[in-house]
C-alpha cells in the first residue's frame, strides 16, 4: 500500500470521524446516541491504527500531525472522568470519611497531640502567668477577648443579633476553613507548616482560655457556653485537617516500598479526603457558631446541647460507616 492509496482508502473514515467528533463535542455525554458512540469508538480505534502506520512508515509529518490531532480529539471525547453525583458526596461523608479517619488513626492522634499539648500547656500559662501570656499572645488580643465575653453576647430581641449572624457565619467559614486547608496544604513541605499551624493555633486558643478562666465567672461562663457547641466540630476538624497534612508529610518522609513520587500520589488523595471531610465539618461548625452558639438562651441549655454535639462528633467518627462492613462481609 502506498501513501496515496492509503489516504484515498482511509479518508472517508477520517471525515466521518471529524464530523462525528465535532457534533458530539457540542452535546452532553448523556445525550449521545448508541449508534454514534459505537461508530465513534470503532473509528477511533481504526484511526489509532492509521496513526501508528503513518508513524512507522514515516509518511510525512503533516499527515502524522493531522492524525495525531484526530486521535487527540477522539481521546478527549472518549476518555473522561466519571461524573460525580450528589450521592457520591453523601456516601463520602456517611461512610468514606469516617472510615478513612479510623484507618489513618496514627496521624490523627499525632495531630491531636500537636494541638492539644500546646493548648493545655498554654491554658496553664494563661491561667497562672498573665504576664507571660501577654508576652505570647499580645496584650490587645487578650484584653479584646476578655472584653467581648464580659457581657452576654446578645440579649433577647437585640437587633444586632439577627443582622450580625450572617456576617459572622461568613467570617467563620472563611477564616476557620482557610486555617484547616492551610494546615493540610502545608503538609507537602514535609509537615513543618502543618505542625506550625496546629501548634500556634493550640497556643493562642489555650492562652485565651487560660486568661478567661483567670478572669472568673461571668466572662468564663459566657465564653465556655459559647464555644462548647461549635467547638465540637471546629476543633476536631482542625485536628483532622492537620492529620491530612501529616499524611502528606508521611508520603514524602516515609515512602515505604514505593518510590517517593508514587508514595506522594498514593497518600495525597487520602490526605485531601481528610481535608475535605474537615471542610464539611467546619461548615457545620460555622452554622452552629453563627446561628446557635450566640442564641440568648440559658447557658445550661448550651452546655447540654454542646455536650451532646461532642458526643455526636465522637459517635460519628468512630461508628459511622461500620455497619456496611459487616453487611458486605
Amino acid at each position: 500500500m502506498n501513501r496515496e492509496r492509503f489516504i484515498r482508502d482511509r479518508r472517508n473514515d477520517w471525515r466521518e470521524f471529524e464530523t462525528l467528533v465535532s457534533r458530539m463535542k457540542n452535546s452532553r455525554q448523556s445525550k449521545w446516541g448508541n449508534r454514534d458512540v459505537a461508530t465513534l469508538s470503532r473509528l477511533y480505534r481504526s484511526i489509532c491504527y492509521d496513526l501508528s502506520l503513518v508513524q512507522s512508515r514515516e509518511w510525512g509529518a503533516r499527515l502524522e500531525q493531522y492524525l495525531n490531532d484526530l486521535v487527540a480529539q477522539g481521546h478527549n471525547c472518549l476518555y473522561r472522568s466519571p461524573p460525580q453525583s450528589v450521592r457520591a458526596v453523601w456516601d463520602f461523608f456517611a461512610v468514606g470519611f469516617p472510615r478513612l479517619l479510623r484507618r489513618r488513626y496514627k496521624p490523627f492522634f499525632l495531630a491531636l497531640a500537636l494541638f492539644l499539648i500546646p493548648l493545655i500547656a498554654s491554658v496553664w500559662v494563661g491561667y497562672t502567668r498573665p504576664d507571660l501570656a501577654e508576652l505570647i499572645a499580645g496584650r490587645e488580643t487578650i484584653e479584646h477577648a476578655l472584653k467581648s465575653y464580659e457581657n452576654e453576647l446578645y440579649v433577647e430581641g437585640d437587633s444586632r443579633y439577627s443582622s450580625e449572624r450572617t456576617r459572622m457565619f461568613g467570617h467563620y467559614i472563611n477564616n476557620n476553613t482557610s486555617i484547616a486547608f492551610q494546615a493540610f496544604a502545608m503538609g507537602v513541605l514535609v509537615g513543618i507548616g502543618t505542625c506550625y499551624v496546629l501548634i500556634s493555633n493550640g497556643i493562642i486558643i489555650g492562652i485565651l482560655k487560660g486568661a478567661i478562666l483567670a478572669k472568673g465567672n461571668p466572662t468564663a461562663d459566657n465564653f465556655f457556653s459559647f464555644i462548647i457547641s461549635h467547638g465540637s466540630f471546629e476543633l476536631t476538624a482542625i485536628v483532622i485537617a492537620g492529620a491530612g497534612g501529616l499524611v502528606l508529610a508521611q508520603g514524602i518522609l516515609m515512602p515505604g516500598q514505593r518510590t517517593r513520587g508514587d508514595s506522594l500520589k498514593f497518600h495525597g488523595v487520602e490526605a485531601l479526603q481528610l481535608a475535605l471531610g474537615a471542610g464539611g465539618m467546619l461548615f457545620v461548625a460555622a452554622m452552629l457558631e453563627g446561628y446557635f452558639s450566640p442564641l440568648p438562651i440559658a447557658s445550661s441549655i448550651k452546655y447540654v446541647v454542646g455536650s451532646m454535639l461532642w458526643l455526636l462528633v465522637v459517635v460519628y467518627l468512630t461508628m459511622s460507616g461500620r455497619e456496611r462492613i459487616t453487611h458486605e462481609s
Binding site: N76, Q182, V188
Partner: peptide, 22 residues
C-alpha cells in the same frame, strides 16, 4: 497519562497552591 482531570485531582492541586505560593 493524558486523560482528563477528575474532580479530586482538581481540588487537590488547587489546594496545594497554598504551599506552592510560599
Amino acid at each position: 497519562n493524558g486523560t482528563p482531570i477528575d474532580v479530586t485531582s482538581a481540588i487537590g492541586r488547587n489546594f496545594l497552591r497554598t504551599a506552592d505560593m510560599l
